[in-house]
């Protein structure tokens, strides 16, 4: 696998889009978190003094893991985009054929791409971890690993994004089409998510029927549903009535893993079994 990854690195290191997207991603994570950090500190807290009492900065330790993971999650489309480009490039240059012709097995070809998706998720996660620490210290609180599981949820979300992007690339093959479809799917899933969230509340409130937030059972929202912006304690108290559906986190977690297995098996099967 190390040998395969070395070859993959040869393809990647001179690819302009890789450098540009990576830069956007790094700056995006730092920038978006800084924006939230700055806005909260200088505008929201000063405009509403009650909130100042109720909550400290969302970047204080214990919260920073959750806040940074949540805010950075929106930028995961960038590594997803890179995954799509890496795979559809092979199809448009027909190098997916040449790699096999030259002696890779079909399994080599798809497995190294899957490992790339995992590595990209790992690097993103490390970046978020460092950013969370940075802002945690910047907000003047003392270090704590409480809430670190949110970094794990971020990793899960990052893998889910990358693996879904990989699946789209393998199924669609054409760069523009795959990217377009990926974004349409993201929008589409969020519309369905909103409808399902509404239905879940309706079920609970009107019929006393609690199956949790169904929107969080969708492929990308399963991992996304694990990440929230830290709740404001006061607002939370008002909201946290038994009227709302229960947040079945373990169902979301299990489903997120199950979807990953599907993305993995489907894209692998596609490459191994069909004509290239």
């Amino acid at each position: 696998m190390i040998q395969l990854l070395k070859i993959e690195w040869l393809k990647l290191k001179n690819y302009a889009a890789f450098i540009v997207l990576s830069l956007f991603f790094i700056l995006g994570i730092l920038g978006s978190n800084y924006a939230v950090f700055y806005l909260k500190k200088n505008f929201i807290d000063q405009a509403d003094p009650t909130k100042m009492i109720a909550s400290s900065s969302p970047y204080d330790f214990t919260y920073t893991w959750q806040t940074t993971s949540y805010v950075s999650g929106f930028l995961l489309v960038l590594p997803g985009l890179l995954m799509i480009l890496l795979v559809t490039n092979e199809f448009s240059f027909r190098t997916h054929r040449q790699n096999i012709i030259d002696g890779w097995s079909r399994k080599n070809f798809i497995d190294v791409k899957i490992v790339m998706a995992v590595i990209a998720a790992l690097i993103s996660t490390v970046l978020v971890f460092i950013t969370a620490m940075l802002f945690g210290f910047a907000s003047g609180s003392s270090f704590s690993l409480l809430g670190i599981e949110n970094i794990g949820y971020f990793f899960l979300k990052a893998i889910s994004f990358n693996m879904l992007a990989l699946l789209f690339a393998v199924l669609v093959r054409r760069t523009g089409f795959a990217i377009g479809l990926f974004f349409i799917y993201l929008g589409f899933e969020n519309i369905i998510w909103a409808i399902l969230q509404g239905l879940s509340m309706k079920f609970k409130i009107e019929y006393g029927f609690d199956i949790g937030y169904m929107g969080n059972y969708l492929p990308l929202n399963a991992s996304d549903g694990l990440l929230h912006f830290p709740k404001n304690a006061v607002v939370d108290m008002a909201k946290n009535s038994s009227k709302m559906p229960h947040d079945y986190m373990y169902v979301s977690l299990a489903l997120a893993l199950a979807y990953l297995v599907i993305f993995y098996a489907w894209s692998r099967n596609r490459i191994i079994k069909t004509d290239l």
Partner: peptide
């Protein structure tokens, strides 16, 4: 050594870079 239908190479890489990849795959 197989050349099938069309020359399949990474468009953004040079000849040497492309052949480095081919050589690595062929071990």
């Amino acid at each position: 050594g197989t050349f099938l239908e069309t020359p399949n190479f990474y468009h953004y890489l040079s000849a040497v870079q492309n052949l480095t990849i081919s050589a690595a795959i062929k071990q």
